[in-house]
């Protein structure tokens, strides 16, 4: 029962200040790809802690998570 529940569950999260829903079980790498970016070219902070790039494919998104996804842009 619990298994079938989780398949349809979604997580409510914030990404760069915007609210978003993703299916439960989504990895952080999956989230980055879903919004259109290459996980190898961004850095991710989850609830104010860096998610090491080597673990982006393993760490799963949890309900209530707050993400900052950043990359390099022009600057002085």
């Amino acid at each position: 029962m619990h298994q079938s529940m989780s398949e349809t569950e979604t997580c409510s999260i914030n990404v760069n200040g915007q609210h978003r829903r993703v299916p439960a079980g989504t990895t952080v790498a999956g989230l980055v790809q879903e919004i259109g970016f290459d996980p190898a070219r961004v850095a991710v902070e989850r609830n104010l802690e860096i998610v090491p790039r080597s673990t982006l494919g393993e760490v799963q998104v949890e309900d209530g998570d707050d993400y900052e996804i950043v990359h390099f842009v022009g600057g002085g």
Binding site: V15, V70, F72, G74
Partner: peptide, 17 residues
């Protein structure tokens, strides 16, 4: 270079790199 949020609404925008 500066570190800024990726633009979620325009993932295909050209990138500095």
């Amino acid at each position: 270079v500066a570190v800024r949020r990726v633009n979620i609404s325009d993932a295909n925008a050209p990138m500095l790199t």
